[in-house]
Design a protein around this nucleic acid. Structure first.
Length: 258
DNA sequence: TAGGCCATCTGGTCCT
DNA sequence: AGGACCAGATGGCCTA
């Protein structure tokens, strides 16, 4: 998992010695909060917790000690938050590592699992996980199609097919505008005579997209081409994958409840 | 040595 | 009001 704790911060974390914050260098007299590694603070007001120009509501005056304590508290919280995020990332990385080990393009640093034995980067882990989920979706879609064929071939009504496989609440992609397969849509979108499976058609759709190259592992190992969606001068990719609302940077996007 | 990756600090914004 | 979340900035470490 954490096979490479390469940088100083990681080592400090391992030793429970944060670089800054409580018990860190920032607690030392020569390094008060706000005068640590961030030299940009020289240009920014130090600890403007009570003097923000846009802070309309009056805030209680804090002594330097109280400001320092508050800053420590906030830093500690943020550190904890990032550490929790890293724990979750490690858990995801642990799951995804086996699927990244077969990388065939070790040259790209964003390609998951490039050099064997090296830890997946965060972005590689996320890209790999995303593509793997899409792959699982395609597989499930193919399984649905086969089940439908078997049911029809045996003269069995399509009713008994497990409902979970038809509409299990999993947002699968049957077409560019279709996220959830229903029983009817499955029947209508899966011609039994065609030799091309739904998964194949899905991957053929993906094959037209630079973001999702053909082939399961190839797709999983594909680097992200962010320009695929909404880049200036570049028409949005029409493929089903890219039509997913992936990169909504809108500030008004609702957050998940905690 | 440049570039990638990362941890941390920090201020701003949003939510409860 | 306090906490969570986010993004920018910064500096350290590692690898090609």
């Amino acid at each position: 998992m954490m096979n490479v704790l390469s940088n100083t911060a990681a080592r400090a974390q391992e030793q429970s010695i944060p670089l800054c914050g409580p018990g860190s260098v920032h607690d030392l007299p020569h390094c008060p909060p706000g005068f640590g590694l961030n030299s940009r603070l020289n240009a920014a007001p130090l600890l403007s917790l009570h003097s923000s120009p846009r802070a309309a509501k009056p805030q209680k005056e804090l002594s330097p000690e109280e400001q320092q304590e508050l800053r420590r508290k906030i830093n500690s919280r943020e550190r904890k938050r990032m550490q929790d995020l890293n724990i979750a990332m490690d858990a995801l990385r642990e799951v995804m590592v086996p699927y990244a080990s077969s990388s065939s393009s070790p040259s790209h640093s964003h390609v998951p699992g490039a050099p064997p034995g090296r830890r997946l980067s965060k972005i590689s882990t996320l890209v790999l996980a995303r593509n793997y989920i899409l792959l699982l979706g395609s597989s499930l879609q193919e399984m649905r199609r086969l089940l439908g064929e078997v049911s029809i071939g045996m003269g069995v009504s399509t009713g008994p097919v497990p409902r979970l496989l038809f509409a299990g609440g999993w947002p699968l992609i049957a077409g560019p505008r279709q996220l959830l397969l229903t029983h009817e849509s499955l029947i209508s979108s899966a011609p039994s005579s065609s030799s091309s499976s739904s998964a194949a058609s899905s991957s053929s759709t993906a094959a037209k997209c630079a973001t999702v190259p053909p082939g399961p592992m190839e797709a999983s190992l594909a680097p992200v081409h962010w320009s695929c969606v909404g880049a200036t001068g570049v028409p949005p990719c029409p493929c089903g994958v890219c039509r997913l609302s992936r990169f909504n940077h809108s500030k008004s996007a609702p957050r998940f409840s905690k």
